[in-house]
Design a protein around this nucleic acid. Structure first.
Lengths: 128, 128, 128, 128
DNA sequence: GTGGTCTAGACCACG
DNA sequence: GTGGTCTAGACCACA
């Protein structure tokens, strides 16, 4: 389900952050939906609870989730993310990788296909 | 020339790698052109030679440059890069960041503008 | 009426404490007025009675209310609060946050406006 | 120097964050000045290095400092803070505490004195 | 049972 | 030597 790569260059908690971001962005996890508890997920993935918490904390800092003591962690509404994250930084990263991908032969068509696919996934946001 | 950001989160050697990639991609550095020697560059930028070396090692691993013992490092032909770097990984990274950017409101038009700009830079060879 | 924010970072009992303080400070609840019973309020807000009780305990510790066994909880006279709460601590907190706000650009004028507004609310007793 | 209260309700790392914020705001620590290393400070205060790091990480998230692997942690320029922190949230907190302080007898004069004092400390920012 | 804090101690990445 | 990650295991605050 989460297919973590323990040998990867980027830390486990970062991989978790990315996974959850994707799930939230693609509306697999909906606003106010509960995330697995720190301990539960730690057991499932057989990694240390502290590592999970670090991931959750980072997600909270970026506005993707909110955590309430004694209750759990939950998906935050999109506006919270928009408040916390700067689109400019992301644009800059995007440009860099786009440049490299196109240099290595990725065509405009392929990118457009990718964009359309993403647009569809985002568009079906049920109620928003 | 290299305008390194010593405050940046990503390590200096990584910034060097990115800079050189950009220069090579935009054909500012041409195939078989010689890169500055480790020592020279270290002096110019007043940073540790080990750091330069690490950057060169990384560039070589990705196929962007090749080193000749006793002579120096040189820009490799594109085909070498294509052999080493898996486009799939980059595509995956691209998709991830594209998702996040669009989730946060970046429009298709803005992305297209970005693509066209890059296409021009790549297409026209060297002129700077 | 109480518009609790279940998503908020600070615990529910703390939000309750703050709400009651505001009501008492602005004289919406008058001295010796009876507060809703723990059970009643718990039902109304559909939250755990323990949470309400914790809030009442905290309010009592700070001198804002007093409890009479078998009868309920009541708003205490101001002097009781002044006895319990050390103004020095609050001054210290105030200074800290004032520093940060002004550091980030909040102007003296804006603060003065805030003060005047509060002064009016405090001065006019009850009217709501 | 740091007079931590290990018994306090708010966690050690939070107290550290507050202390450093104050030092930075009052320009005791200047832009690009180096903070004590995680290990050094941990030894001095006889607390766990992880706790220090948590504090530094939080300060970095709020834009007050930046950390570079292998080099250390440094005070960031003010603009970085302004980018990360929302003044609105702080204003809301300020209003709440201001209300309580004035209810408990803090006079407008006393607050004005406080403001002037802070203004002076901020004003002497050497070069900015 | 839930998130949050803290410690002790190990190991990695960077310069 | 510097920051960063991770583990194991303890204890606290909240609902």
């Amino acid at each position: 389900m989460f297919d973590l790569d323990l040998r990867s260059r980027d830390p486990i908690y970062q991989q978790l952050v990315d996974k959850f971001k994707t799930l939230i962005i693609n509306n697999v996890l909906e606003t106010d939906e509960k995330l697995p508890s720190v301990r539960t997920l730690a057991q499932q993935l057989t990694i240390n609870p502290n590592t999970i918490q670090k991931a959750y904390r980072e997600l909270e800092a970026q506005g993707y989730i909110y955590s309430v003591k004694g209750k759990g962690s939950f998906v935050a509404p999109i506006v919270d993310v928009e408040k916390k994250v700067s689109l400019k930084e992301i644009e800059s990263d995007l440009k860099k990788i786009l440049q490299e991908a196109m240099f290595l032969g990725l065509t405009k068509q392929e990118i457009l296909a990718m964009i359309d696919e993403i647009e569809q996934q985002l568009g079906r946001g049920n109620d928003s």
